[in-house]
Amino acid sequence: ATEALRVLAEMTRTLDAEVAAICERLRFETYDLEKSVFEAVYKLDKLERIGLYVLINVDPQTTDAAARELARRCIAGGADALQLRAKNLSDRRFLSLAESFIDVCRTNGALGIINDRADIAALAQADGVHLGQDEILPKSARILLKRPMLIGGSTHAINELNEAVTAGYDYVGVGPAFASPTKPGLTPAGLGYIRQAVQRLASTSIRPVAIGGINAQNLPAVLETGIRAVAVASAILDNPEKQCRQLKAIIVRS
């Protein structure tokens, strides 16, 4: 459509400048529409794939090879999306690890998300970036990303969820469902908040992801809220492949 309008604009430029200008305007409007439709379809496809979302924490003592192997084992167990968290790495090492981490995810059929850093996510060609509450907003992140990419955020209460809807996130973490060993200072929001979030987001395209202290024992209760995507971290550390497989089976059965 855009190419046809470009040809029409060129053909009519010497015959009728006003018609040519209309064709040119329609060409750019059509391009913007096509871009918006493509991005919406791209994001919907990615979001619908998320059921089991695993958070992988890397510190300076963790080798890159160990992080990649953990990612492979989680995906082998059924993880749909993996988030790389590396708050204490140098930028250079973070980027190097992110590139190989995303390659592992893509090669094995899982989504690869980078925590906090939109610049690293863009350079590593990740599937998305997860922005903390103190990070830049989605509107600013999309300027850096320059290509369709999922943008996630975190919420702990209904007022934060409402702000996330306005801000334009593609998915939001909702929780903590329970006390979490990865964030011991955070008071659990409980299953009531997760149920609220599911209801609040039902009329939007935003996907809620339950998070916080979730394991195989309490996952059935979490899924009873109506949530269809959950994020885990410490619950898979003992035996990543086996524990991911167990969690994924519970999600699939629900």
Rank of each mutant, 00 (worst) to 15 (best):
E163M: 14
R245H: 15
L247R: 08
A221L: 13
E48F: 13
V58L: 03
E39Q: 12
G109I: 09
R73A: 05
D103Q: 14
L8Q: 06
Y169T: 01
P60Y: 07
V41P: 06
A21S: 10
D64E: 13
T12S: 12
N57V: 11
E34L: 13
I120R: 02
T14Y: 09
A76M: 00
R207M: 11
I151Q: 05
V232T: 00
G51D: 14
D80S: 10
Q246T: 15
G112E: 04
P138M: 00
A67H: 10
V19E: 13
A65M: 11
K248R: 15
P188G: 09
A79D: 03
F38I: 10
R117H: 13
Q246V: 10
R49H: 07
Q61E: 15
I136R: 08
E29T: 13
G109K: 08
E160V: 04
V7E: 15
G112M: 05
F28G: 13
E48C: 13
A177N: 02
R253Q: 15
T204Y: 05
T225I: 05
Q217G: 11
D45V: 12
P176E: 03
D103E: 14
G212I: 06
L219W: 01
D238N: 12
A216D: 07
P220M: 02
L145E: 07
F38L: 13
H130L: 02
A233E: 08
V58N: 07
A221P: 12
T12P: 09
S203L: 11
A20C: 09
L52Q: 06
E18L: 11
L201H: 04
Y169R: 01
R228P: 11
G78V: 04
P60G: 01
R27W: 02
G152N: 02
G212E: 10
D16H: 01
A76P: 00
G190M: 01
A197K: 03
G132D: 03
S96T: 15
V230M: 02
N162P: 01
R147S: 12
K43M: 02
Y31N: 15
C74V: 04
K46Q: 12
I114M: 05
S254V: 03
M149F: 08
R72G: 05
Q243C: 05
S254L: 07
L82E: 08
G77W: 00
I227V: 15
Q199N: 13
V165A: 05
A210Y: 00
Y171W: 07
D170H: 06
V41G: 04
L15W: 10
N159W: 10
N162C: 09
S180Q: 05
T62M: 11
G212T: 07
R6Q: 11
R245A: 15
I50R: 00
Y53T: 07
K35F: 10
S90A: 08
P181F: 07
L131I: 02
G213Y: 00
A110W: 02
A121T: 01
G77Q: 02
A235D: 08
L191P: 03
H156P: 02
A122K: 09
